[in-house]
């Protein structure tokens, strides 16, 4: 016994290193299991407030671009106003609320920290628990998927960007409505790869890819990007498709956090039918 204690004493440098390294790895794995991670992330109030004041300083430099984005968004919304439709029927409709039950709510948020050049990137937003944000909510803009909320504090939330090694998104080829899995392969933040499209689907360069709506996180038909290239590698059974993303991840300012009001209901149902008798 004494020998062991002496050995540990002599090698205390190595054992201290081992101990601290184990703590670091526990932290890493806790982060992967992201529901349970605690205060050491940029959603904590100290790091959050530094990022917020920094973003406040640099924001005005980008006002022009933000104005353009807003104008574009207003223009898109104008497509749906009553004025842009010609009324050409004389029937009277009654609008039943039971036909249109609201499924998604959107919370407007501002990006206060963002990166695109790491292999796994994260985003910090200026809305938190106080505004109704919860982990696992999706983040979108009008032309793409931004990421998924992982941690929430009172006033801030941090999220895995789509540009993250662990994020895979269910997407759909708009013309043929075939499903695939979209993921980022690192390096170029304007490009992504779509996998698992079967070879009998006819693809064209320039075809649009949209979100599938099969996930609990993102609504259907959010435009994501266009096909820039596709091929079947030797020995593979599926296309691998390169996508040009619509969204410039280096330049996102205002985003919408998606709240799925029927998530619990659907999740409970799906879990119920997947459990064996």
């Amino acid at each position: 016994m004494r020998n062991i204690i002496n050995f540990i004493k002599r090698q205390h440098f190595f054992f201290l290193f081992l101990l601290l390294q184990i703590i670091a790895f526990i932290l890493i794995f806790q982060n992967h299991n992201y529901q349970r991670s605690f205060f050491v992330n940029s959603a904590n109030n100290f790091a959050g407030s530094i990022y917020q004041s920094y973003s406040g300083m640099t924001e005005y430099l980008r006002l022009k671009q933000i104005n353009e984005q807003l104008a574009e968004e207003i223009n898109n919304l104008r497509h749906y106003t009553e004025n842009s439709f010609l009324v050409n029927d004389k029937h009277v409709f009654t609008h039943h609320d039971t036909l249109y039950k609201r499924q998604f709510l959107y919370i407007n948020a501002k990006v206060i920290n963002n990166s695109v050049f790491n292999r796994s990137n994260y985003i910090t937003l200026n809305k938190g628990r106080a505004h109704g944000v919860k982990p696992d909510m999706g983040i979108i803009t009008n032309n793409g998927i931004v990421g998924i909320i992982t941690n929430v504090s009172e006033n801030f939330s941090s999220a895995m960007s789509f540009l993250h090694a662990g994020v895979k998104i269910s997407a759909r080829h708009k013309n043929s409505r075939h499903l695939g899995t979209l993921q980022w392969d690192g390096y170029n933040y304007r490009k992504a790869t779509m996998l698992y499209i079967p070879p009998h689907v006819s693809l064209n360069k320039g075809d649009t890819i949209v979100s599938s709506g099969y996930s609990l996180i993102f609504p259907e038909n959010i435009p994501i990007g266009t096909i820039s290239d596709y091929h079947i590698s030797k020995g593979e059974n599926f296309y691998s498709v390169s996508i040009d993303l619509f969204l410039d991840y280096n330049n996102i300012e205002y985003v919408s956090i998606v709240k799925n009001l029927m998530k619990e209901e659907r999740q409970a149902l799906e879990e119920k039918s997947q459990t064996p008798f």
């Binding site: 932290l27 890493i28 940029s42």
Partner: peptide
Amino acid sequence: IIMDSFSDSLGMHTSACLFMAF
């Protein structure tokens, strides 16, 4: 730990710094 809390990389910078210091 301080770097990690800023860059959301919980534990990664800590681990790398320890490795380097060792």
